Simulated scan of single mutants.
Amino acid sequence: MHRYKVREIAQQCGLSEATVDRVLNGRPGVRESTRAEVRQAIADLDKQRAQLRLNGRRYLIDVVMQTPQRFSDAFRAAVEAELPAFAPAVPRARFHLWESGSAAQTAEALARIKGSHGVILKAQDEPEVADAVNRLVASGVPVVTYTTDVANSDRCAYVGIDNHGAGQTAAFLVDQWLGQQPSAVLITLSRTVFRGEGEREVGFRSGLRGSGRQIVEVSDSDGIDATNERLVLDALQRHPEIGAVYSPGGGNTATVRAFESLGRACRVFVAHDLDADNRALLRAGKLSVVLHNDLRADARLAIRVILAQHRALPEEPVRPTPVQVITPYNLPS
């Protein structure tokens, strides 16, 4: 049985009930253009039903993130800018944000969430986080992971870029820019328990395989400048051959300072995300490119997925968003 009556579909598309019935039951003798009209009518009815569900309804969405403040500030602004687009629904957001901590802290934050219609989560890929996600989902609260996945959980979708592909893109750019120069490459990670950064690193290493370039890794800075600067200084002093940087984890202002304090040149610097720091570094010529994805589009998609879980919007496939290669000359306003 179809979710709409034959008469309702016929009224929507202006065809006879007999014709609609033939289309719905896959009977022959109907032009493809007529079948397309019926499919469009059903899609329009879905939209109308969604609008009725949305009308004046309030949704409370929790954004839970362990991330440097520069990124959480940017994503918070993106979420708040997108919320009015879901009118006539009235979505509101609560933000639970911190810069460093353990998986236990994340699990505790998730356990404290009450009265939520959905969670957007950027967190460690650890068993206790997955367990906390599963408990939320079992209680009827859908969870969308953002930028970095908690894959072995019951989350309903991952929203963000193809992290492995982004790492391969970074490797291609670094190798092209360095050319014949035998420079080693520094890769800076905020913390290895974030799956997204790990996928970027694996993609980067696979992209440079066979190039002969040494890759030096620093990690566990949480993307915080003071910690990252100390780690990068140590790596540069131990590896005078480093002449390029790939930064999946942030803390790029500190990395630039470390190079400058030693009087060292960084020939190529590929970073992620157009936060305030990276915009300034890109304009100043301190970064070569920034690999970016549209935060507002990400926020919009994550909210749509949550509302679809409540059948307030039609479900749609969620695929990794394409990464944008941003230079000082195509910097979005």
Results as ranks from 00 to 15, higher is better:
residue 5 K to R: 15
residue 6 V to D: 07
residue 8 E to N: 06
residue 8 E to H: 12
residue 9 I to P: 05
residue 11 Q to N: 14
residue 11 Q to D: 13
residue 12 Q to R: 15
residue 12 Q to W: 11
residue 17 E to S: 08
residue 18 A to C: 02
residue 19 T to Q: 04
residue 20 V to W: 00
residue 21 D to V: 05
residue 24 L to H: 07
residue 25 N to L: 04
residue 30 V to L: 09
residue 31 R to D: 14
residue 35 R to N: 02
residue 43 A to G: 13
residue 46 D to E: 15
residue 47 K to D: 14
residue 52 L to W: 10
residue 52 L to S: 13
residue 56 G to D: 06
residue 56 G to Y: 04
residue 60 L to Y: 06
residue 60 L to R: 14
residue 65 M to W: 11
residue 68 P to M: 02
residue 70 R to M: 10
residue 74 A to P: 07
residue 75 F to L: 09
residue 79 V to P: 10
residue 84 P to D: 12
residue 85 A to K: 13
residue 86 F to I: 05
residue 88 P to G: 07
residue 91 P to S: 04
residue 100 S to V: 12
residue 101 G to L: 02
residue 103 A to P: 03
residue 104 A to Y: 07
residue 107 A to E: 05
residue 108 E to V: 14
residue 114 K to H: 11
residue 120 I to Y: 07
residue 123 A to S: 14
residue 127 P to Q: 06
residue 133 V to K: 03
residue 136 L to C: 10
residue 137 V to T: 09
residue 138 A to L: 12
residue 138 A to G: 12
residue 138 A to I: 11
residue 138 A to H: 13
residue 140 G to V: 01
residue 142 P to N: 06
residue 149 D to R: 13
residue 151 A to E: 15
residue 155 R to Q: 12
residue 156 C to K: 15
residue 159 V to G: 02
residue 160 G to M: 03
residue 160 G to F: 05
residue 161 I to N: 11
residue 164 H to E: 13
residue 167 G to Q: 02
residue 169 T to S: 09
residue 170 A to V: 03
residue 173 L to H: 06
residue 173 L to N: 08
residue 176 Q to H: 12
residue 176 Q to K: 15
residue 178 L to A: 11
residue 181 Q to Y: 14
residue 183 S to V: 00
residue 186 L to E: 00
residue 189 L to P: 00
residue 189 L to W: 04
residue 191 R to T: 15
residue 191 R to H: 15
residue 192 T to N: 07
residue 193 V to W: 11
residue 194 F to C: 08
residue 199 E to C: 05
residue 199 E to F: 05
residue 199 E to A: 11
residue 205 R to L: 07
residue 206 S to I: 08
residue 208 L to G: 03
residue 209 R to K: 12
residue 218 V to D: 04
residue 221 S to F: 03
residue 223 G to D: 09
residue 223 G to M: 07
residue 228 N to I: 06
residue 228 N to P: 08
residue 234 D to P: 09
residue 239 H to I: 00
residue 240 P to S: 08
residue 245 V to L: 05
residue 245 V to D: 00
residue 249 G to N: 01
residue 251 G to F: 00
residue 252 N to R: 04
residue 253 T to I: 09
residue 258 A to K: 02
residue 258 A to S: 07
residue 259 F to R: 04
residue 259 F to L: 08
residue 260 E to F: 01
residue 265 A to S: 15
residue 266 C to D: 06
residue 267 R to W: 10
residue 269 F to N: 06
residue 270 V to P: 01
residue 273 D to E: 15
residue 274 L to E: 09
residue 274 L to G: 07
residue 275 D to F: 04
residue 275 D to Q: 02
residue 277 D to S: 11
residue 277 D to R: 04
residue 278 N to E: 01
residue 278 N to Y: 03
residue 279 R to D: 08
residue 280 A to W: 09
residue 285 G to I: 08
residue 288 S to F: 05
residue 291 L to Y: 00
residue 294 D to M: 04
residue 295 L to V: 05
residue 296 R to F: 06
residue 300 R to E: 09
residue 301 L to E: 06
residue 301 L to C: 10
residue 306 I to S: 07
residue 307 L to G: 00
residue 314 P to D: 07
residue 318 V to E: 11
residue 322 P to S: 13
residue 327 T to F: 10
